[in-house]
Amino acid sequence: MNQANHSRFPAWSPRALLRNRAFLTVAIVILVWVVAGFAKPGFGSYGHLRYLLELAAVIGLVAIGQTYVVIAGGIDLSVGAIVTVSAVGVPLVALSGDGSGTFAVLIILVAATSIGFLNGLGVAYLRIHPMIMTLAMATFLQGVLILIAGGTAISAQNPLLAWLGNARIIGIPAGVLLWAVVSGAALAVLHATPFGARLYALGANPLASALSGINVQATTMAVYAVSGLAAGLAGVLILGMNGQGYVGIGDPYLLASIAAVVLGGTSILGGSGSYAGTIPGAILLVTITALITVVNASAGWRSILFGSLILLLLLLSGRESQRR
């Protein structure tokens, strides 16, 4: 266990630091921010950076689950749909009435976790490939959502959501604070608990982990449940920031979460990486989007720029190690 930790966190040295993808991603973010701050007045202002962080918080929350799942050797294509379930679900549940809205949020978080758990059930026991299981789940949820919520936007009014969307604690938005707290917990679970170690083992070699006594099924179900919970939390935050939920609100976060994970240096093949890289990955993604919006270009050019930049960043941080 100690040995494994050692290889994951090599002793500090300049070369090791340069090879550390999480650090590289942070460096790229800082570089982009500094360059953009000089090139574009107003970009580097505190208000703007705070706004970027708020946007990154949502992607970051979704990407917690995605990071866990990818490290464990899977992928979750249902996070977008779960974000929508949560953003549309909270107002629906809240209609039945409770004062602060805490109850509604809790119910929805449980529901989101259960959806993730069902994904895990399919992957672990029915042996369905994660991509198919979660894709089918997303298709299923999309249908159910339209049946329940229809095409209209549903607004939510309750104190908890309002606080989450608007409150500033010593100048820091509540959403960013929530992200910071949850990130801390996510990192701790990933790197300092047996569960975290099991995720790496599972992603590196499922057969070997099963033979060494890891309960593969239980771990798989747990990791997808975590992904559901994280996506649900992100949905609640979006609802708070947006004031209303509608079908399709979570769609952009599916690809964003995968991109953040990969930009953060987590191997899409599983078994390596860390949420520490995903955090700057999410910020980087939001920064790119903001920069492209600043450049006054048509929708087509914006899309091309975004894709090209992701490819470029991939070259810096996302390369798979040479196969032997």
Partner: peptide
């Protein structure tokens, strides 16, 4: 370039 196909 040995980049993962899904993300490329």
């Amino acid at each position: 370039l040995r980049l993962p196909a899904i993300i490329v």
